[in-house]
């Protein structure tokens, strides 16, 4: 009887609270990051290039997705071409004083006709964006 009680005492004092805390923190982290990724990144076949392979000093100010058929998607929402400039301008005004210093990430499908990208670039240049980041898929 006494031996059994000893055995039980030896098993139950194992405190798994910190482990459960850590596991829940990890779950919350993955849920939140997965949600953000889904919101800002549409499913596209990006150009397969290694990119600049350097660490980014500053995060993207805005992410613009351009699909193969020319649809523009910003923050998981389809945006009309005419409405894009004012939308980008609004975001840039909120985040930076100088649009030329903004970090606009263009995620463009590799099969998209460059005429669509050209139109987008002209629009961005018109509102003062002087440099863009073009997303690539690391092969």
């Amino acid at each position: 009887m006494a031996w059994r009680r000893k055995q039980r005492d030896r098993i139950f004092p194992v405190d798994i609270t910190p482990m459960i805390d850590v596991v829940f923190l990890l779950i919350i982290f993955f849920m939140v990051t997965a949600q953000f990724a889904k919101l800002s990144r549409a499913e596209l076949d990006l150009p397969r290039e290694p990119g600049e392979r350097s660490e980014l000093a500053e995060p993207d100010t805005i992410i613009i997705n351009l699909t193969r058929d020319g649809t523009l998607i910003v923050n998981d929402r389809e945006v009309e071409r005419d409405a894009l400039a004012s939308m980008v301008q609004e975001v840039l005004e909120q985040t930076t004083d100088d649009p030329a210093m903004a970090h606009v990430l263009l995620r463009v499908d590799r099969e998209t006709d460059s005429a669509r990208l050209n139109e987008l670039v002209v629009q961005l240049q018109a509102i003062g964006v002087g440099r863009v980041r073009v997303a690539t898929e690391v092969p």
Binding site: A126, R133, E137, V138
Partner: peptide, 14 residues
């Protein structure tokens, strides 16, 4: 499973 992405940063000139 998410594909790793990188980027290129060209200047723009219209």
């Amino acid at each position: 499973l998410a594909e790793p992405e990188d980027r290129l940063t060209p200047d723009l000139q219209v």
